[in-house]
Design a protein around this nucleic acid. Structure first.
Length: 832
RNA sequence: GUGACCAUAGCUUAGUGGUUAGAGCGGCGGCCUUACAAGCCGGAGGUCAGGGGUUCGAUUCCCCUUGGUCACACCA
């Protein structure tokens, strides 16, 4: 019986989620005959809590997942979280500084990382709880983290493979330096901000023939040339000349060069070239073989022989130099100018271009494609990463929606430069490179022998995110022989890498082994590590409870000491026991390529493009078939919702007050494909009312079915009454249209159709017209009305379930005859 | 600078080469009718930004103008 009174989501949502979880409905069946459907969740950053944007993502993806699950596909929605390297680190740095006044250097690498990990773990737990509140039907048994052991193996394998192919190289170049974060950042992490600046026109010295213009006089200490346009009549006669002069006590050697990139119209038409502190100047310097002189350090302090300048911050140095120019009558003009300055996306600091040795991914370098499943790329063909990225979208192997983003994607690829992947931060995947004297070794594990030191840098967070669709599905898969013996050879790509013993702690959850019969050499399946949960000391068995993912060695050791204080043991005497799950096909084979990648358009380049790069290169395959990009959430004034603007709607408080169903429905209702989503309180209230409508109508129908009601097959031809016929026709049309809309990502259309059908066609018209037959009549007319009501209600619940999973499930559980244990696994209606 | 997108009711918007352009919220009038006042019934409200073109027919396709949003590139 449905309770009297209005629908109260809080009475039901938690229980219903438990019902689904305990039923195991989120984990796809192992029925190999069924087609699969998979989505990997864009992993939220472990920087705190879920925001409204995540809620939108969860709503859309859960709609897709529930729809396809009800269609009977092997449906996997794989959850995870992102370590978000620089974002998480800087968050924790700020917190520690605020609370304890300490920097990460005060704590040291190891202690600091422990603090970050603790914070990340807490964020993770919060995020998982919040995700569940949204009703997200994610397969938690496959949960992953971008920085866990399994993902680390994938990262190292990817790095090594790319390095072996010459696609990852160490380069000495001018990079984007974030002085606040004290790290390099990639071009994509640079945000240009417009601001007022002063353009100074001046001469280096009185014996230099002409003036140059700059907004940054302090960098002129590092000038090694002056560039002019080759056709500029004013300067033609100076080209090729060299000058030795003194600028602010700094000795400069300036060569006059001609370069096409100089705009004769700007400033004086002469550009002071500072190769060490400007990307463009660095490129000019490369073309003209100019020397490089670094005059700014990592703390943005000046390096100079001039004592007045040495160690000064750049801004201070600038005013000192401007003063000096004035005093020496060298300053010709100072004018205000609008300038776009580069800032770091995460920290907001002004980016300082600096020369540095870093690791790069070469996007224009040719290599031989090893194994291609791609349409327009053949195995053995010479390609570049750029070409791969372009090819799969051009061939429509990957479809980007809305379509306009394909153009934006191509535009980005065309302007793409080599990707700087090393970072000087501590939280992240350590660059898998080891140094010893002059030797360098690239590999997943430290080379044998003493004295090797690992590169202190970590990798760009997007490097690991780029592997997400397949690193979560067990890649790389290890081949293994003699699996039943305790010694196993690990063979990767036909090469014996290592012999493992079962007590080797290198195993981790998620690792997949290919199984082979040692006699027949027949490959018969896969074993996936599902648990590293037990340890044994010598002959004493010990099972740890509650360590579902990992049991750390320290945990085991501590617990053991508590239980067996009399034993003399060390942490090293632990034996690890692993649990495996047997699979005929690996997850990778079953679920990859994934079907849809759904995310915000703001990370098209950061993430989507990188996933395409990594997957086409490493697997020779696409990561997903369709990219569906959703918009930003805006408030009633169309302002972007963000914490800093303080206009953000907290999804959790909405769920508390109005229910998850109302929130989900409000996000898709009235929002065109890929458009920004306007969230206003009244929109959510409207959907809360709709949930209540469903509640009341269901109550009415269920209360009027009568004691002996048994659902019969409902066929429209069996009904003579025009009301019956009419509602059944409308239902059939809605069923048909909903499938079309959902197949085409038209969530708003689908939602509105069902809303219209349920509220206005069913409740306002049919329910009202049928009342007299239910109350006053008997026999066929009444029975028909009951059959139609039940039929329409059941199918409406099914149609509504992807959008409003909780209330529909609550009602379904009250139906007198259930086809399935739960609505979540009901058959999607076809031809009703 | 290069490019993309948008403009529909008071607000938020959906949709379409073809009858009368839909919806939610708001507003107006009337209803406590045994599922629901978080409801029901009934009105009102639109030159589909402006102009031109293609067409038998344009809100829809093309061009221009205006206004807005965004991406990329940048001036040293």
């Amino acid at each position: 019986m449905l309770k009297e009174g209005p629908y109260n989501p809080q009475d039901h949502e938690e229980k219903i989620y438990q019902l689904w979880e305990q039923g195991g409905f989120f984990t796809p069946s192992i029925d190999q005959d069924k087609k699969s459907y998979s989505i990997v969740l864009p992993p939220p950053n472990v920087t705190g809590t879920l925001h409204i944007g995540h809620a939108l993502m969860l709503a859309i993806e859960d709609i897709l997942i529930r729809y396809h699950r009800m269609q009977g596909l092997r449906t996997l929605w794989l959850p995870g979280t992102d370590h978000a390297a620089i974002a998480t680190q800087s968050k924790v740095e700020k917190k520690i500084y605020k609370e304890e006044g300490k920097s990460r250097y005060d704590l040291g690498r190891e202690d600091f990382l422990k603090r970050v990990e603790k914070f990340a773990q807490e964020s993770h737990d919060t995020i998982v709880q919040q995700t569940k509140r949204m009703g997200a039907s994610l397969d938690w048994s496959r949960e992953a983290y971008t920085l866990d052991e399994a993902r680390n193996r994938a990262v190292n394998m990817a790095f090594k493979t790319m390095h072996d192919d010459g696609l990852i190289y160490q380069g000495d170049r001018v990079i984007n330096w974030d002085p606040k974060g004290q790290t390099t950042i990639s071009d994509d992490e640079v945000v240009h901000v417009e601001r007022e600046a002063a353009l100074y026109t001046f001469k280096y010295s009185s014996d230099f023939p002409f003036a140059i213009a700059t907004t940054r006089p302090e960098t002129k200490l590092g000038d090694t040339a002056v560039a002019v346009h080759p056709n500029d009549e004013r300067y033609k006669k100076f080209i090729g000349q060299e000058y030795d002069l003194e600028f602010c006590k700094e000795k400069l050697h300036i060569k006059i060069i001609a370069d096409e990139s100089v705009d004769p119209e700007f400033g004086t038409g002469a550009l002071g070239v500072t190769p060490a502190h400007s990307h463009i100047d660095w490129e000019i310097a490369q073309r003209h073989n100019l020397s490089l002189k670094q005059i700014i350090d990592e703390k943005t302090r000046i390096i100079s022989v001039n004592e007045n300048l040495q160690g000064k911050k750049v801004e201070e140095a600038r005013s000192i130099i401007v003063e000096w120019l004035k005093e020496n009558n060298l300053l010709i003009k100072e004018e205000p100018i609008k300038q776009n300055v580069a800032t770091a996306e995460r920290t907001g600091a002004l980016v300082e271009p600096l020369p540095k040795k870093q690791w790069f991914v070469a996007v224009n370098k040719e290599f031989v494609m090893k194994e291609s499943k791609l349409k327009n790329i053949k195995t053995g063909e010479k390609v570049t990463l750029k070409k791969l990225m372009r090819s799969v979208v051009e061939s429509s192997e990957i479809k980007i929606m809305p379509e306009q983003f394909e153009k934006i994607y191509f535009h980005w690829i065309d302007n793409l430069r080599d990707w700087c992947i090393s970072r000087q931060i501590w939280y992240g995947h350590r660059v898998p490179v080891y140094y010893k004297d002059q030797e360098i070794c690239v590999g997943a594990e430290a080379p044998v022998g003493d004295g090797w030191e690992q590169d202190p840098d970590t990798l760009d967070t997007w490097f690991s995110s780029g592997l997400w669709t397949f690193s979560t599905l067990g890649w790389p898969i290890n081949e293994v022989r003699h699996f039943h013996e305790s010694l196993v050879d690990l063979i990767i790509k036909g090469e014996k890498v290592k012999t493992y013993r079962f007590d080797d702690e290198s195993y981790c959850v998620g690792q997949v082994w290919q199984l082979e019969n040692s006699q027949t050499q027949e490959k018969f399946g896969y074993a996936k590590i599902t648990k590293v949960s037990q340890a044994r000391f010598g002959d004493i068995g010990y099972g740890a409870e509650g360590h579902e993912k990992y049991a750390s060695q320290e945990d085991m050791y501590e617990t053991f000491k508590r239980y067996y204080p009399e034993k003399e043991i060390t942490a090293d005497s632990l034996t690890w026991i692993y649990e495996f799950e047997y699979q005929q096909k690996s997850d990778l084979e079953t679920f990859h390529p994934t079907d849809v990648l759904e995310t915000g358009y703001d990370i098209l380049f950061f993430w989507v493009a990188r996933m395409i790069l990594m997957t086409t290169y490493l697997l020779g395959d696409i990561p997903f078939k369709t990219v569906y990009l959703h918009g930003l959430i805006r408030d009633a004034e169309r302002q972007k919702m963000s914490k800093s603007k303080d206009n953000a709607v907290d999804p959790l408080s909405v769920i508390d007050e109005q229910g998850a169903d109302a929130l989900r429905m409000a996000m898709v209702f009235g929002t065109g494909q890929g458009n920004d989503v306007v969230m206003t309180p009244d929109k959510i209230v409207a959907q809360k009312k709709f949930a209540n409508k469903i509640w009341n109508a269901s109550k009415f129908i269920l209360n009027n079915l009568g004691q002996e009601f048994k659902p019969a097959v409902v066929n429209i031809d069996l009904f003579k009454n025009s009301d019956d016929k009419d509602i059944l026709e409308k239902l059939a049309a809605t069923v048909k249209q909903t499938a079309i809309n959902l197949d085409n990502f038209m969530f708003h259309e689908a939602a509105q159709d069902i809303y219209q059908f349920f509220w206005h066609d069913l409740c306002d018209v049919y329910l009202e017209s049928v009342k007299s037959r239910l109350y006053d009549e008997e026999g066929e007319s009444q029975e028909n009305a009951r059959q139609v009501l039940y039929h329409v209600l059941l199918n409406s619940l099914k149609l509504l379930h992807p959008f409003m999973p909780f209330i529909t499930e609550v009602v379904y559980q009250e139906l007198p005859y259930k086809n399935k244990q739960s609505l979540i696994i009901e058959d999607w209606p076809v031809n009703v």
